[in-house]
Nucleic acid binder design. Structure first.
Lengths: 152, 152
DNA sequence: TTATATTATATAGGCCCCTATGTAATCGGA
DNA sequence: TCCGATTACATAGGGGCCTATATAATATAA
């Protein structure tokens, strides 16, 4: 940061950040015709078989904070992707389910995403993809450990 | 997306997205004491030796769109990190430079980030880190190629 | 030299994520 | 049973990224 030799632009973190943004742009562009977005994927997969989950359960599943999920669900409800039903067991909570309309589009969405993933891994052997996933899992575990130590 | 077998949560893209968010949270938390943020790193490194660059040059260097850089620079100017001077050669443009105050904090910021990078790569051999970087570079190249083909 | 690109910023509008905090309902133990 | 702790959700405020579009200044070509 004060030395010409050190380059934070060639660090794994910076590559990861650029790839994350690029994947989001590409996925969102391709899913737009179906009315989906990449941020919705965890919700769509959690609810795909007709399951009904609470907002908190969805937030935990998607690994985002509760207010992030609240906003995402608000947009998805506005766009007709999900529907809320009161939870008979807990008056604080609602159960969230996919609309039939959204459910009907899931197979097309899945096809788009699988094709995108294949393109993104183009030129990498199966073994290299497995290596990449394994290294990413280890780095993610390190990051989570760093956060755990900072805020127990 | 409609099949119990397929899990978009175990895809390289999703791991990458989670790592990117975790790194940003950790880096921002640690840099806060200096008044810096991870999004500012490309700007800080580009200007560290007293260089003066335009907004467009900084956006290209940081690999973000021009309005993103405009907003980032507005926050950095508000926070006393950068200063704008009119460009004598082009009245549309300003030249952006670090304040002395920000420059004085760069070595501390660099130390924080280098320590964070080491922790994030904990348990990975030098060779594994090199492999990870190489795989990420190839995936990033694929992603950029996908965007180039979609919008030439 | 004048009309036409092209370029540098600015601005508007939106998505997605975060922290901090408030409110209401539920749970658990004295 | 009743009260304090926990839990579910809502809301406020902000960072950071994006696309689309407007405006002004510069560059280029007929």
């Amino acid at each position: 940061m004060a030395d010409a030799e050190w380059s934070p632009m060639r660090t794994p973190g910076h590559y990861i950040s650029r790839i994350a943004r690029a994947f989001a742009r590409i996925g969102d562009m391709r899913l737009r015709e179906l009315g989906f977005a990449t941020a919705q994927l965890p919700v769509l997969t959690a609810l795909k078989d007709g399951a009904r989950l609470s907002q908190t359960e969805l937030a935990r599943w998607a690994k985002v904070e509760q207010p992030s999920m609240a906003q995402l669900l608000a947009r998805m409800e506005r766009d007709g992707i999900i529907r809320r039903e009161p939870d008979p067991r807990d008056r604080r909570s609602s159960l969230i389910a996919l609309t039939d309309d959204a459910r009907a589009k899931l197979p097309a969405g899945r096809a788009i995403l699988e094709a995108g993933n294949r393109e993104a891994m183009h030129g990498l052997s199966d073994e290299e993809v497995a290596t990449l996933i394994s290294l990413l899992q280890r780095v993610l575990a390190n990051a989570e450990e760093m956060e755990r130590r900072a805020a127990p």
